[in-house]
Structures are given as C-alpha cells and as structure tokens.
Computed example of a mutant assay.
Amino acid sequence: MVEKLAAAKMRLLVTGGAGFIGANFCHYWRCRYPQGTLVVLDALTYAGNRASLSSLEGQACTFVAGDINDTPLVEKLLQEHELNTIVHFAAESHVDRSIHDPDAFLNTNILGTHSLLRAARKQWLDGPQGVIPHRFHHISTDEVYGTLGPQDPAFREDTPYAPNSPYAASKAASDHLVRAYQHTYGLCTTTSNCSNNYGPYHFPEKLIPLVILNILHGRPLPIYGDGQQIRDWLFVEDHCQGIALILEQGVEGENYNIGGHNEWANLDIVRLICRLLDEAFAADATLAERYPHAAPSQGKPAESLISYVKDRPGHDRRYAIDASKIGRELGYTPQHSFEEGIRKTVDWYLQNTGWWQPLLGEQYAQWVQKQYAS
C-alpha cells in the first residue's frame, strides 16, 4: 500500500487538459487549490483547444504541447516539475470517428495510457528515491459496460465489461491496463467511469453543442434512428467535483462510477434545447441580428430543423450509471439539474462565439458563408 497523498500536496499532470472535460477540470481544480502545481500535457489534436485554458496559463498553469505516447517527455515532466499525480483525460472519444478510423483510438487510448503508466512506474516506483507517494487517476466511460435494455438496472462498478464500439473497446483495454499496473507493480491508481458529459468548452461535433450551433446557423438537427437512445447526462462541473473527491478521498485501487442520475432520450434533449433557444431569441432581439438564418429569426420554431437520419452501426440503446458508491463513500451529489445545466450551456455558447467559431471547420464555414450569401 502506497502512502496516501494529501490533496493539498498533489502536484498534477493533467493529460488532455485542453480538451472538453480536461479543461473544465483544470479550472475547477485551480479554484479549489489556487496554490498547487498544475501542468497540462495536450497534443492539441482537433478536439484540443489551448484557448480553453487561456485564463489559467502562466503562474496558474504550465502548458506543454506533446503526445502521451512520448514516454521520455512524460518522464521528463514528472521529474522536472516533481509531479506526483496524473489525472488522465487524454483520449479519442467520438464513437462515430472510432467506427471510421479505429486505429487512432487504439494508438491514443491503449498505447498512450500504457506510455503514461510506464513513465509513472519508472518515476514513482523504480527511481533512486524509492517509492514516492503518488496517484494515477484514469478517466473512463460508461460505454465500456455495453448497452442496457429499458428495464435493466443501471451500470455498477461490478457490471461486466461488454464494449460495443471501437471507442468503448479501446477504453475498456485502457481500464484493464490501469488495473494491471495497480495489481502487478503496486502503482497507486483509481479509475472513474462517467456518463455523458455536457457543458462549456464542448467540441461542436458532440450532440448538445452540435444542436445549439446548428440551430444558430439554420442547419438540420440530425437525429439517429428514432431518437429514443437513452443516456445518463452529467454536467461537466459535477463530473469535476466527483474527480476531485476521488483524488482527495478515493481508496487506492478502486473504481467509481460518476453519473448525473439523469436519463434522457436524445430526441427529448434536442427538443429541450430547441425550446430554450426559442425562448432566448424571443427575449433578446439582438440574437436575430447575430444569427439571421436561425429558425427563430425567421419566425419558425427551432424544432422545425429536426431531421431523422439512418442509425449508426452498433448504436447502444441505453446507458445509465449507478453512482451510489461514490455518493455513499465520498459524499458525491450532482449539483445541477439537467434543465439548469442545459440553460447554463446554451448561455455559454451564446456568450462565447469567439471560442467556438474557429472550431467549426472549413467545410462548415463554407456552408454557412454560402447560406448567408443566398
């Protein structure tokens, strides 16, 4: 058993810290521990955005552009900054992309995780100083558990793994590697499996930001199949709270499910966002000037943009997280209702055009320009 590390003495390496959840966690942790060491390692692939950390960089946060598969770089960072904690967010995470290009997911999610584990073992267990108090926290997903029927109980920490997509399979493999390094080498690890996150800094390819931005630009709102796929949704700040509790109080070698106790069908989520944006346009006349091709700007409900498309291969029907363990053992309770969290998210995207506009991509920008010129 490794000596327990007090949270106030944790010196963090956050991998994937320029991504959606990683960036939110960096902001959350810095507020919680304003004097602590925080180093971010991110390869700045398409979903990484350094602008998400702009208010932290400098004394509050050291940013390093680099790949988690660069084991010597990770070793160097751990040594030079005397880091004793890794919070591992870095991952390829979009299921659709994993179907079309699974190789990238195996490289980042499996080999990248192993690279970090090797570096951590060398620095914290095999160095000349002997065993250094440390923590390796691995962020995983509920998708490793597979799919649920309408009446099935929610996923628990002891639910057998049954991944159904290349993404889920790659995350399941990385979970097993973390467990193996705990049991084989004595590395102090914890793992959390979370439900679907939403909130600020979310890359526009994911459902909720995609719907918001498509409404603003008058684009169709694509619904896979019948839209009745059910997910447990978690406001990203609530997820960060759960991770912080695990770092502060979590038991070495344990897994914790973090969920929002909040199951919604995809179609119902889209309809809720449509209603909230209709209300926003009705309350603020300047939105119609900023987004003239939005359905509400043209006197149409946002729901008129809904378009049903062919379901994707192997689409899991339902995910649901039983988060009773982390609630019972660590005192975790989500702080946001879904409608409250969605309202905050919609407001954030309306107020932060400068963050998301550069991320839309050339093809999307050309489409918007063509529509606006018509």
Rank of each mutant, 00 (worst) to 15 (best):
V87I: 10
F105A: 07
V87N: 00
V87L: 13
I86D: 00
R97D: 13
D103F: 15
E80A: 13
I110P: 03
V95A: 15
H94I: 07
Q79Y: 04
E92G: 10
F89R: 08
G112D: 02
E80W: 03
L111Y: 14
L111H: 12
N84W: 04
V87R: 02
P102I: 05
S115M: 03
L116Q: 11
N84T: 15
L111D: 11
H114Q: 15
G112Q: 05
E75G: 12
D96L: 14
D101S: 15
T113Q: 04
K76V: 05
T85A: 05
I110T: 13
L77D: 10
T85K: 01
V87H: 00
L77Y: 12
T108R: 01
L83D: 05
L111G: 01
D103H: 15
L83G: 09
N109A: 00
L83P: 02
V95H: 01
G112T: 09
N109K: 07
E80Y: 04
L111M: 12
Q79C: 11
H94D: 03
I99D: 04
D101K: 12
Q79D: 11
N107D: 15
E92I: 00
L83T: 07
P102R: 10
I86K: 00
S93M: 07
H81D: 04
E82T: 10
A91C: 07
H114T: 06
G112E: 08
N84D: 08
E80D: 14
Q79E: 11
T108P: 01
F89K: 01
N84C: 05
L83I: 08
E92M: 07
K76W: 11
H100E: 15
D103Q: 14
A90P: 02
Q79I: 06
L111P: 05
E75M: 11
A90T: 01
V95C: 09
D96P: 08
N107T: 13
T113W: 03
T108F: 00
E92T: 06
A91M: 07
